[in-house]
Design a protein around this nucleic acid. Structure first.
Length: 199
DNA sequence: GGAATGATAGTCT
DNA sequence: GACTATCATTCCG
């Protein structure tokens, strides 16, 4: 049986959480519908000694969730048109998060295609392979989802473990950042067709 | 198949 | 006023 991940799962360093999130199921409840997908690509961002992280310059109104308790959604708006979802890590008071970059869609594909503005016959690879696409496919926006508790069983957004274990995990440098480019903090399920960029 | 480019708005200095 | 944890489109080969 699939079960929701515990607070303790998230109360760890971002790289450990990131690796363990691969293969888990992200579930979004939307007006009675259930949209879900398997997490196939993530990136770890550290609170300390990570110039690429939003929390690098300290706590601000925008990134306050990162300094709160673990297991909460951090949603931000970027490039004037895209949203991205993160999961907060580390105990309360310490920043750190995991960016969800790509899903392998499992249920609710038609709704995802509609939210993305694609035809129902579009390739499922186009639905949630990329952080901006993922948010659009699940209808995630900062105004309603930033700060959501992922452990709460009533929450619109949850992450579950159905026992799936990836065969092989690959670490690569993170994408789209200007600073600390060299660290291999991007993790993906090797060979999975739904990662945002072929490697 | 890959590189270059423009759209667009919230956040911080 | 600059910068950005992106995407889709347009070009070129």
């Amino acid at each position: 049986m699939a079960h929701t991940l515990t607070r303790a799962f998230y109360s760890r360093p971002p790289d450990a959480v990131a690796r363990d999130l691969l293969g888990k199921i992200l579930e979004r409840r939307l007006r009675g519908q259930r949209l879900s997908g398997r997490i196939v690509e993530v990136e770890a961002y550290f609170g300390r000694d990570d110039p690429a992280a939003h929390s690098a310059a300290g706590k601000t109104a925008r990134n306050a969730v990162l300094f709160g308790p673990p297991g909460h959604a951090y949603v931000y708006f970027i490039y004037g048109m895209h949203s991205c979802v993160n999961v907060s890590c580390e105990p309360e008071g310490q920043a750190g998060c995991v960016l969800l970059r790509a899903l392998e869609p499992l249920t609710g594909l038609e709704t995802m295609a509609r939210l993305r503005g694609l035809s129902a016959s579009a390739s499922s690879r186009m639905l949630a392979s990329g952080p901006g696409r993922l948010c659009q496919a699940l209808g995630i926006v900062r105004a309603t989802h930033n700060g959501l508790d992922l452990i709460d069983p009533e929450s619109q957004l949850q992450i579950r473990d159905d026992g799936f274990r990836p065969e092989s995990i690959k670490a690569t440098p993170r994408i789209g950042i200007r600073k600390a480019v060299e660290h291999p903090h991007r993790f993906l399920i090797e060979g999975n067709a739904f990662v945002s960029k072929a490697l």
